[in-house]
Each structure stands twice: as structure tokens, then as C-alpha cells.
């Protein structure tokens, strides 16, 4: 990051210095006497530049920070506050119950099921989408006729609005609906199911739709990662007599490590907060078979007007996501920054 910034800072140098001179004339210079010293004769202009840079940063970052505070920080704090009360959303919030809402949520069998479902979705999404995504990305990274078209097609499900895709799948998966009719025509009639209405099967149906929807993101991210794998390495490997498969396994995939780990992180957080697709397909049903933490909290909050309780659930969801994110970044993504440097250095040394 630092090296990226250098050219820009230098570029603005002259303008910055001019502006700095003006501010100095306005009496600001006296605020920085200590910084100037015999050690560095250039210190005064640089400090002015820094000051100006800070102003610039403040100017551009403030609107974003304000929006972030108003629409993210304040709601989180409010949710934390609501979660300590028993409150139906109407009238004053005066029934303080401490951590009772949290205890109720953690002891509720349906919420436990929601957490289990979420964790299952996290694991399954990675286990299913990573091999598929990697395989397709490696294929699409080779040269063949219609490659661009294939890349677009593969990415289309991810681009379609979630609600639209959800409604389309909902209609396709109706009993005796288009999917069943299709299976019948190609002679796989024995596979037909009550896709969404069977408590035993609905979870797997939802999992299938989620894979269809999100594998595109994995593919595109991995494809982008593949562009960062220097062609020279592949050539060198080929010269050394490595097969295509060996090259992928020993060189490409290890170098894709940072990209894969980033995708896993995104996938994990997405799976934990999963709501739209499930809500449209099953609403968390049948009989809570597909309930997630987010559908549970909407159910409890808006449908049952238990805003205090739902806030507690929201805080728990936030905490789980937050802790998992921190753990992941600490233990899994820790080395990634240095990894990229190694790649770069290798490239340079060649």
C-alpha cells in the first residue's frame, strides 16, 4: 500500500508546497517548530505536506465515516441496547431484563438449529464450491474458442438479483413443476422430489440453489487470481517436463493460496448472514428445516414483534460472524501479505 501511495504524494508535491506556504503565512508554521530541525533541512515543507494530506484525507473520508456511523455503528449500538429489554416495538422501552434475551435465544431449539444450519452451510459451501470453482477457473484459464462467452455464462447466476433468481427457482421447483417435467422427459423421472416441501430434502435443495448462485463468484475471483500467476513459471515447469496437471497442482494452486483464502472468507461471512435466498425459497421452513439465524431473527422480530429478543439474536449473529472473521484472519490469512511479496520478488528476480 505504501509503495502505491508514493507516486501520488510526489505528484501533488508542488501544489501541496504552494498551499502549505499559504497556510504557513496564516500563522500555522509556528505549530510545527519541533519537527523542523538540523537533522532534516527538508522537514518543514514535508510537515506542511503531511498536514495538507491529512486535511485531504479528512475531507474525503468524513462523509463515508458519517454514513458508516449513522447507518452501521449507531444501529449496532442500538441493537445492543434493545437486546437488554423486553420490548414489542411499541411505547416506551422500560422492561429491563438484562441478558435474559440472550439466555432464551441460546436455549431455544430452533435457534440452535439455525446456528447449526448456518455452520453447515459455511462448511458445505466451501467444500462444494471450491473444487467446482477451481476446476472451472482452471479450465476457463486455458485458451479455447468461446472462452469469453463461457466466462460470462458462468458468472451470470451471480449477477442476477438474488430475489429474481430465488423466485425463478421457486417456480421451477414446484411440485410437478418444470424441473420435475424436465427430469421426466429425459427419463430421470425417478429423481423427482417435493423439492421445497419435504423437511428432509428442502435443506439440500436450498444448498443446490446456493451453489448454482455463488459458484460464479468463486470462479471469477479465482480466474482473477490466476492472472497473477506468472506465465514464466508455467513455461519453466513445462520445460522441466511437468504435465499440465502437475503444473496446476504444484505451482498454480499454491500461488492461488491468497485468492482462495480471501474467497473462503467472503463465502464464510455470506453463509453466516444468509437470508434472501432462503426467505424466498422456504421462509426457513418446512418445519424449520432451512432456518438460518437471519430468517429466525426476522421471524421473531417483525412477525412476532419481539424486538428486544430479535435484537439479542442479531447481536449473537454479529458476534459469531465477528469472532469467526477475526479468528480466520489471525490464523489463516496471516501469512498472505508476505506471500504476495514473494511472488513479486520472484517475478522481479527473473
Amino acid at each position: 500500500m505504501a509503495s502505491d501511495l508514493t507516486p501520488r504524494t510526489q505528484g501533488t508535491g508542488p501544489r501541496g508546497a504552494a498551499a502549505g506556504a499559504r497556510t504557513a503565512a496564516a500563522g500555522q508554521a509556528s505549530a510545527w517548530p519541533a519537527a523542523a530541525g538540523p537533522r532534516d533541512p527538508d522537514a518543514r515543507p514535508r510537515s506542511r505536506r503531511q498536514w495538507r494530506q491529512r486535511l485531504e484525507i479528512a475531507f474525503f473520508v468524513t462523509p463515508a465515516l458519517v454514513l458508516f456511523a449513522v447507518f452501521v455503528v449507531v444501529p449496532i449500538v442500538q441493537a445492543g441496547r434493545y437486546s437488554l429489554f423486553k420490548w414489542n416495538g411499541l411505547g416506551p422501552m422500560d422492561d429491563f431484563v438484562g441478558f435474559q434475551n440472550y439466555a432464551n435465544a441460546l436455549g431455544d431449539a430452533i435457534f440452535q438449529r439455525a446456528v447449526t444450519n448456518n455452520l453447515l452451510i459455511v462448511v458445505l459451501s466451501i467444500a462444494i464450491q471450491l473444487p467446482i470453482g477451481l476446476g472451472i477457473a482452471l479450465l476457463l484459464n486455458r485458451n479455447f474458442a468461446g472462452r469469453t462467452a463461457m466466462r460470462v455464462i458462468v458468472f451470470v447466476p451471480y449477477v442476477i438479483a438474488e430475489v429474481v433468481a430465488g423466485v425463478v427457482w421457486f417456480l421451477l421447483l414446484q411440485p410437478n413443476g418444470p424441473l420435475d417435467a424436465f427430469l421426466d422427459t429425459i427419463g430421470l423421472g425417478f429423481l423427482t422430489q417435493v423439492w421445497l416441501g419435504d423437511p428432509e430434502f428442502a435443506f439440500w435443495t436450498v444448498m443446490g440453489v446456493l451453489t448454482w448462485k455463488y459458484v460464479g463468484l468463486a470462479i471469477v475471483l479465482l480466474l482473477a487470481g490466476l492472472q497473477g500467476v506468472p506465465e514464466e513459471l508455467n513455461e519453466a515447469a513445462q520445460i522441466d517436463g511437468a504435465s499440465w496437471w502437475q503444473t496446476q497442482r504444484k505451482i498454480t494452486i499454491p500461488l492461488l493460496g491468497p485468492t482462495i483464502r480471501t474467497w473462503i472468507f467472503l463465502s464464510m461471512i455470506g453463509s453466516l448472514q444468509l437470508f434472501d435466498m432462503v426467505w424466498i425459497l422456504t421462509k426457513g421452513g418446512p418445519a424449520n428445516a432451512t432456518v438460518t439465524m437471519a430468517t429466525y431473527l426476522i421471524n421473531q422480530g417483525t412477525e412476532r414483534s419481539q424486538y428486544g429478543y430479535a435484537s439479542a439474536v442479531a447481536v449473537i449473529l454479529f458476534a459469531i460472524s465477528f469472532i469467526l472473521a477475526i479468528l480466520y484472519q489471525t490464523f489463516v490469512q496471516r501469512g498472505d501479505a508476505s506471500d504476495t511479496k514473494i511472488v513479486r520478488r520472484r517475478k522481479v528476480s527473473r
Binding site: I110, P199, P286, A287, N299, Q300, E303, R304, S305
Partner: peptide, 20 residues
């Protein structure tokens, strides 16, 4: 009311699903 009503409806649907 929404709270008892919601819990009641959920439990009734579980009977329909053969799980309650």
C-alpha cells in the same frame, strides 16, 4: 397476540410436517 400466536402457528405447522 403475535408472540403466542406465532409460537402456536409454528408448532401447528410442525404437526402438518409430521414433526410435532
Amino acid at each position: 397476540g403475535e408472540n403466542i400466536g406465532g409460537a402456536m402457528n409454528d408448532a401447528i405447522v410442525n404437526i402438518f410436517a409430521g414433526q410435532g
